[in-house]
Design a binder for these strands. Structure first.
Lengths: 207, 207, 207, 207
DNA sequence: TATGAATGAGACTTCATTCAT
DNA sequence: TATGAATGAAGTCTCATTCAT
């Protein structure tokens, strides 16, 4: 998989600089997008937050949508990286799954605003860019599915392969819903409770 | 709860006419929003599809966002109404739940595009309008929660009250994810399979 | 041949109004284009001269190039119309030719600035639009060729058919060069002299 | 006549280097101008084609228009030089004229694109620069006029002095029209035919 | 009540030119 | 002398909303 960022043309020759500046750009844009949404944020505002002129901003991207892509890609990668780094090669699939769920939900909680953004604005990306982001998502589903499948092999979990895939999807969505249904869930649960209850439900379903 | 539509001012005195026209307006707008998204649809396009002039359109609403609200409210109500109408007062909570899940998922599948729209554009509503839509959502959660609670009372389901609320949320989201993760789920499951597998997982969790 | 103006989309429904306003638009733009050239004239300037807002201007056209097309088409039609109206069905081809040359050169002289504009900016039109303008030009060539051909038939002119076509082109270009080489020709000739000398040269070539 | 190129200031001291680089610059720019027109070609593109940085490019010129002037001057000089080099001091003015016409038209045909460019973009030059280019043109007119005048003196051609000047202009324009009316002329004539027919017409006019 | 032409602010984007390194 | 990142003014175009008829 080629680096998605190389999809985006730039006038600047110094690749290193492009990389650094784009990171700064993402940092500037993400806050605005979270606060106002992609469509209601103007490029001028982003440039101001970016601390550079409009012209300079456009030396690093070609269109406003490129910025959205950089932002979405960043968030998406960020979740993947964080989750990957917490995954240990523990032996017990049951414990592995519990830990993965806990870590994933915790990450979501930490970057709740970003999750929401990724969730709501991905549709504004073009085909190719959207595919990148969704592929990253799929990578996460694969992780959960892998753990469950291991448990099935070891006869610890008692569901079939198809259900394993579905359950992996469910876990992903249950993580995300902690962000996008916060208005309702926060009234009833703390993160800790939420993790515990969801984990219990999943565990029971695996018996 | 006051009729949400009365939130939106109108120049027209004849309440009956307002109601009829707004329904036509919603029908015109919803197709466009589904196809192009709210932000990329222009009021001019809506007026054309609506078969009325810009001026007349603005006799029934005040801002473009009002249209979005009418649309979201309509979709949201539509799901509630359909689901309510299939709910029977059967005695067995287990069967009631199975039926409700099946009916809800089926409704989602039927109006998949609308669900997606509701899902992605609600954020563009203002505080007050968004609250309306989310309240309607909550009504659905209550329905599922009610069935589960009944099962708990009858000692058929073995989970606590808090988990019941959470499970109700889960069911809602699992219905919606059939729409918003269709790009992934459709590869692996038909609607029928999806309903069966999710129902099984929920059933196991209730034991 | 469909009316070229119908090639250009408009937001305005009243066809009559579109026609009137476009004429006003052409009048506003042509002066600016003559003075500053197409590229150096801004749409804002055109709107100001047009006496309407930018938005309104763009209700009558879609792009800046549309304005250029309207202008070029107008000039081109204008020359054709004027020439056509002076053409009499006189019997003597020699006299007909002399008159046509005189009238054509005189028209060019009258709208010298416009001729120059047409001449220099046609290249900025897109394929289809350029074709329209060039086709109109060809119509004029045909007129001159027709007169010459008639003279050949009547054994008054002694050149072959191919040369007749070429000579028709020459006459066209000799008319235009009165505009685009004015910096040189005006030093040596008045319009009257120019017409006489060119007519004499052509007449001798026809012997 | 001072060297036109000295009109354009340069940061670089080494006159020799300036001259060499400017020639390379012209070569780079002319292709782009032919393909896209002056206004639609960006300085960045020219620099890239030139193989130098923006900064370096601007060491050799002051404004984008300077480049256009260098290009126009180059083309204009190029035609003059080529034509001069073919002119022989033959004795017979009639043959001299035929040869000059043939050579001139042939040169035009060879650098048709450049002729067109010169023709269409001269207007974008400023007063002073445009004068340079037009003066070079006049030099060519003088050449043709000279040959004709010689013929008049030798009683071979039978037209007056004023007509001689006009005819010289006509010849120039008839050469150029082979380029700028190619869309029409190429349908009917090859270069060879075109030369022959135009030469015949001119010859007849001289009798 | 209905029409649709008119508004004008503001959106995104480009690009000739400069200047610190 | 050479580089190329940075500038910022200006360009074209859009569109939600209004109001005279």
């Amino acid at each position: 998989m080629p680096d998605p960022k190389s999809l985006i043309a730039s006038n600047i020759k110094d690749k290193e600089l492009v990389s650094v500046r784009r990171q700064e750009l993402v940092n500037a844009a993400v806050e605005l997008f979270v606060r106002k949404g992609f469509h209601k944020t103007t490029v001028r505002e982003i440039a101001r937050e970016f601390g550079m002129s409009m012209g300079t901003l456009y030396d690093y991207i070609r269109t406003k949508e490129d910025i959205l892509f950089l932002v979405c890609d960043h968030i998406s990668k960020s979740v993947s990286d964080k989750l990957q780094s917490t995954l240990t090669g523990k032996k017990d699939p049951a414990e592995n799954l519990r830990n993965a769920i806990r870590d994933y939900f915790t990450i979501i909680d930490e970057i709740e605003d970003y999750t929401l953004l990724l969730y709501q604005e991905t549709k504004s990306l073009n085909r190719e860019e959207r595919k990148y982001v969704l592929d990253a998502e799929n990578g996460l589903v694969d992780i959960f599915e892998g753990i469950i499948t291991q448990g099935i092999k070891e006869k610890i979990f008692h569901i079939d392969k198809e259900t394993a895939r579905l359950l992996a999807h469910n876990i992903m969505v249950e993580g995300q819903m902690w962000a996008f249904r916060r208005w309702a869930l926060r009234k009833n649960f703390t993160l800790k409770q939420y993790i515990k209850l969801q984990t219990d439900l999943i565990t029971k379903a695996l018996r």
